[in-house]
Design a protein around this nucleic acid. Structure first.
Length: 297
DNA sequence: CAAGTGCCTTTATC
DNA sequence: AGATAAAGGCACT
């Protein structure tokens, strides 16, 4: 067992960070969170300002959980109004993970037009079927399938994991990685727009998926993914930043056009600044948990 | 409990 | 450019 004592004034909330829906393969059993990153399964728990973990190095924990981000400074930068202030108050300590880009990419291709419980199930099945089995702490884990493995997978095999029409996107994207036609190395040094454009060329990757991958795995914190929740949040709290006509249009439609998405996302980036992605996650999780509390009443 | 609605959207087509 | 439809199937009401 190893531990990290959090730096004073650097809030971190493990539960919020792992349950907010940015990563899908973590499970809480008792007070321990169990997960696997790359080929390394580990467990972790939080007790006040102490993090305890097994089978992983402190350096990795620091990096993966974004503990090196200066959260107070970030929150200060995004705290532009009373709505975001309320979200910050409610979910302070939520941090953006540094996910493995490959797993993140496939996860969000699968996540389109699905709800979070269903996404978790799909990714579990996919890992069980195409990943490598490992055992840690008397529990079974599966590595996330490699591009090579998914490139070789049959469509029916993928559909069997519940991917539905997403199966062909996953297979095709996997082939581009397996062949070496595409990799993340080039993206890391690219400017935001360039990296985004490159991702958009992949099958099954639209603006929303690209923004999620940039934010959750490529350390592009200016990315501002606009899903149905964020769209509702903008309509509810930030309508005054747009023309009435545009808000009406955006409110009435089931799905956004590319241009509409861009307008909403660009608002997020310019309004909240270089850590817009943090603002997005705070608003997203706050609004979702508020909604849950509502439905309990 | 059945049936309807919605889901951290993308793509194809007009 | 912009609107519209289709696309698994699960989860929730």
């Amino acid at each position: 067992m190893e531990k990290i004592v959090l730096t004073p004034n650097q809030p971190f909330d493990l539960d919020l960070t792992l349950s907010c829906g940015q990563a899908f393969r973590w499970e809480k059993i008792g007070e321990w969170w169990y997960g696997i990153v790359a080929d390394n399964p580990f467990k972790m728990r939080q007790n006040g300002n102490t993090l305890e973990f097994e089978n992983v190095s402190p350096d990795f924990v620091e990096k993966y959980f974004g503990l090196t981000d200066d959260l107070p400074s970030i929150l200060k930068q995004i705290a532009k109004d009373k709505h975001i202030a309320e979200a910050i108050k409610a979910v302070r300590g939520l941090r953006i993970l540094r996910q493995d880009p490959w797993e993140c990419l496939i996860s969000y291709i699968c996540a389109t037009y699905k709800n979070i419980p269903a996404i978790k199930q799909m990714l579990f099945k996919l890992s069980k079927k195409f990943g490598e089995k490992t055992v840690f702490d008397n529990r079974v884990f599966y590595t996330f399938p490699t591009p090579q493995k998914l490139a070789k997978a049959s469509l029916t095999g993928l559909v069997g994991c519940g991917l539905g029409y997403r199966a062909k996107y996953v297979a095709e994207t996997a082939k581009r990685f397996a062949s070496g036609e595409f990799n993340f190395e080039g993206l890391k040094a690219s400017p935001f727009e360039k990296a985004r454009e490159a991702l958009l060329a992949l099958p099954g990757v639209g603006l929303k998926v690209a923004d999620c991958v940039l934010l959750f795995s490529l350390e592009r914190f200016e990315a501002f993914p606009v899903d149905v929740w964020v769209r509702r949040i903008i309509i509810k709290y930030y309508a005054n930043h747009f023309e009435d006509k545009f808000m009406e249009k955006v409110s009435s439609k089931k799905s956004l056009t590319k241009a509409e998405y861009e307008r909403l996302s660009l608002f997020g980036r310019s309004y909240f600044g270089r850590y817009a992605g943090y603002a997005q996650e705070y608003l997203f999780h706050f609004e979702r948990t508020m909604d849950e509390k509502h439905s309990l009443n």
